[in-house]
Design a protein around this nucleic acid. Structure first.
Lengths: 213, 213
DNA sequence: GTTAGGTTGATAATTTTTTAACAATATTGA
DNA sequence: TCAATATTGTTAAAAAATTATCAACCTAAC
């Protein structure tokens, strides 16, 4: 096998590894100890080839008889996608979406935690929302370094997006997960992922309408 | 130009068309009437080549001097991605995420509207939440055809995902936008888009940690 | 034993998506 | 007028991602 540097795995593979792990946790909770590529594939709507290819890329080998050992695979995936030093995340924008993400995520991962929230609504400041203390966005430059925050999830209203992003970057945060519908432009050294809900709905609508129109 | 059937445009192009249009709306509100490919590209973090290529695929031509006429381009994009007959959308799961999506989306599109919500929490039933009437999920099979619902946005808790999906499909809905972290398997004739928030965060974390570990 | 069935791991082929290259055209300014 | 500049549209190349293929191997059944 060609030696694949683990830190330049394809982005799509990283996404799938995260999902494999989630499924593997479920399987282990159901008492399974081993799993075949086609089983994993079925649960993820993939082909078994793709599962095996992904696992090949991370250098994991199974056995022909038992497939993959779930426990080991979980550990290996963790060693690749989890950070050694825990990463701290802030939610910027504590509206419905921010709260949804916060409460959904809280306590789910060991090495990736939402530790703070920011908002510009003074009603929300100093309150604990979904278990997380909420600060005024103006304080982000002080709070982020104090709490060692490396990632921000951006869930503010569209008109506030650019300004919020500017403040996030100014606070020294290196990763932004943008859930607003405003595309961002960021400096090269900032990692950016965009997940726009409206786009996803319009894309789906496009394919659905083909059956109708 | 090779003739490109508009209904088999690449999925990625569809996504971008939706985003182009959003940006174009903004530009027109700011008083612009024309736009160059590189301007559009900058706002979307793309190259101008990609913009031009996308527009080529939908058969739109600009001029060398003035670039593209925003109004015309918006119209053309609409004629491609919007449905002739309006599409009706239901939100299944009226927690924080469901409410966030509902309130965010309400009134934004003419031919794509959230018209109903479903939940299994009796507290929520019969109430109007974010402007949308909320029904018990058990009623979906009656309500969906009555209201002519073609798309469901799935935002229930993980453990309820499979069951909810089953009911959605059983109600004759042909498109599912899955925002839960549970991968779905659906029949071939059902259109499915998966957007998992945890995956997106873990992917971003992977790239951020490279700078740290 | 040995054959049949099923699985992994790896390479190759294919498809999809992005990026490069460049001719054609329009505008501006000397 | 004509060169310089800037833009579009298109084809070609490259890169990324997926899918096909198949040898090697293990197990179980006979």
């Amino acid at each position: 096998m060609e030696i694949q540097k683990l830190n330049d795995l394809p982005g799509k593979t990283i996404e799938r590894l995260s999902q494999y792990r989630r499924i593997l946790f479920n399987s282990i909770n159901q008492g399974k100890t081993n799993i075949y590529s086609h089983e994993l594939a079925k649960m993820m709507n993939l082909t078994s080839v793709q599962v095996r290819r992904d696992l090949m890329l991370i250098g994991y080998s199974g056995s022909q008889s038992k497939g993959y050992i779930i426990k080991d695979l979980i550990t290996l995936i963790g060693s690749i996608i989890d950070s050694k030093n825990p990463l701290n995340v802030a939610v910027v924008g504590m509206g419905n979406l921010g709260r949804a993400i916060t409460s959904y995520f809280s306590g789910k991962r060991e090495r990736l935690s939402i530790v703070a929230a920011f908002d510009n609504d003074t009603q929300k400041i100093k309150r604990i929302i979904a278990g997380i203390p909420c600060h005024h966005i103006n304080k982000i430059k002080e709070v982020a370094p104090e709490m060692n925050i490396q990632i921000a999830i951006l869930t503010v209203a569209p008109q506030g997006t650019m300004e919020a992003a500017r403040m996030i970057i100014d606070a020294g945060i290196k990763g932004i997960l943008n859930y607003t519908s405003v595309p961002l432009t960021v400096p090269e050294n900032i990692h950016l992922e965009e997940y726009d809900i409206i786009t996803s709905l319009e894309k789906l609508a496009f394919f659905v309408k083909q059956d109708i129109d």
